[in-house]
Measured scan of single mutants.
Amino acid sequence: AEKTGIVNVSSSLNAREGASTSSKVIGSLSGNTKVTIVGEEGAFYKIEYKGSHGYVAKEYIKDIKDE
């Protein structure tokens, strides 16, 4: 099942092309942005936001229960 997560940073969080800190940054998400978690790979979540996919470090995403 898809989960919703909240970007848990004070400034912004980089979204990357792949599940690695050396992957190209494809965008950034500001704190408290809601994202859909579609998968996980190592220390990263694969997320969907406004129709695009990217990878973000798990430690900066807070899971919330689907309402």
Rank of each mutant, 00 (worst) to 15 (best):
residue 23 S to P: 02
residue 24 K to T: 06
residue 15 A to V: 15
residue 26 I to R: 02
residue 56 V to P: 00
residue 60 Y to L: 06
residue 1 A to Y: 15
residue 15 A to D: 01
residue 57 A to E: 15
residue 52 S to K: 12
residue 62 K to Q: 09
residue 13 L to N: 01
residue 11 S to N: 11
residue 17 E to V: 08
residue 22 S to Q: 11
residue 61 I to S: 01
residue 38 V to N: 02
residue 30 S to E: 13
residue 47 I to R: 00
residue 46 K to V: 10
residue 40 E to V: 06
residue 25 V to F: 06
residue 19 A to Q: 03
residue 36 T to H: 10
residue 31 G to F: 13
residue 16 R to K: 05
residue 61 I to C: 04
residue 19 A to K: 05
residue 3 K to I: 09
residue 22 S to W: 07
residue 10 S to R: 13
residue 39 G to H: 02
residue 53 H to W: 15
residue 37 I to Y: 01
residue 2 E to G: 14
residue 16 R to S: 05
residue 31 G to Q: 11
residue 29 L to G: 00
residue 60 Y to A: 08
residue 54 G to I: 09
residue 2 E to K: 15
residue 44 F to H: 02
residue 64 I to Y: 08
residue 64 I to S: 05
residue 61 I to G: 01
residue 32 N to M: 11
residue 45 Y to H: 02
residue 34 K to Y: 09
residue 40 E to P: 01
residue 62 K to H: 08
residue 7 V to K: 03
residue 49 Y to L: 07
residue 61 I to E: 00
residue 48 E to L: 15
residue 32 N to T: 06
residue 3 K to G: 05
residue 65 K to E: 10
residue 19 A to I: 07
residue 45 Y to A: 02
residue 6 I to A: 03
residue 53 H to C: 10
residue 32 N to H: 10
residue 53 H to M: 09
residue 29 L to C: 06
residue 10 S to L: 12
residue 44 F to K: 01
residue 7 V to P: 02
residue 42 G to M: 03
residue 28 S to W: 13
residue 13 L to R: 02
residue 14 N to K: 13
residue 53 H to T: 10
residue 36 T to S: 08
residue 14 N to V: 15
residue 2 E to A: 15
residue 27 G to E: 03
residue 4 T to D: 03
residue 29 L to K: 02
residue 67 E to W: 12
residue 10 S to P: 11
residue 19 A to S: 07
residue 47 I to V: 05
residue 26 I to T: 03
residue 35 V to F: 04
residue 64 I to Q: 06
residue 30 S to D: 11
residue 62 K to N: 09
residue 38 V to K: 05
residue 7 V to F: 03
residue 6 I to M: 07
residue 67 E to Y: 12
residue 56 V to S: 00
residue 48 E to P: 03
residue 5 G to Y: 06
residue 53 H to L: 10
residue 31 G to C: 14
residue 9 V to H: 10
residue 16 R to N: 07
residue 16 R to P: 02
residue 51 G to M: 05
residue 66 D to P: 11
residue 9 V to T: 11
residue 29 L to T: 02
residue 6 I to G: 02
residue 29 L to P: 01
residue 41 E to H: 07
residue 10 S to V: 13
residue 26 I to Q: 01
residue 43 A to E: 14
residue 30 S to P: 15
residue 19 A to D: 02
residue 67 E to T: 13
residue 28 S to F: 12
residue 25 V to R: 05
residue 59 E to M: 12
residue 11 S to L: 09
residue 56 V to R: 00
residue 56 V to T: 00
residue 48 E to D: 06
residue 36 T to C: 11
residue 45 Y to F: 08
residue 33 T to F: 07
residue 30 S to K: 14
residue 4 T to E: 06
residue 25 V to Y: 05
residue 8 N to P: 04
residue 63 D to Q: 12
residue 9 V to Q: 06
residue 5 G to F: 07
residue 9 V to F: 07
residue 65 K to N: 10
residue 57 A to M: 13
residue 48 E to H: 10
residue 35 V to N: 01
residue 6 I to T: 08
residue 17 E to T: 06
residue 23 S to D: 05
residue 64 I to P: 06
residue 37 I to A: 01
residue 12 S to H: 12
residue 65 K to M: 11
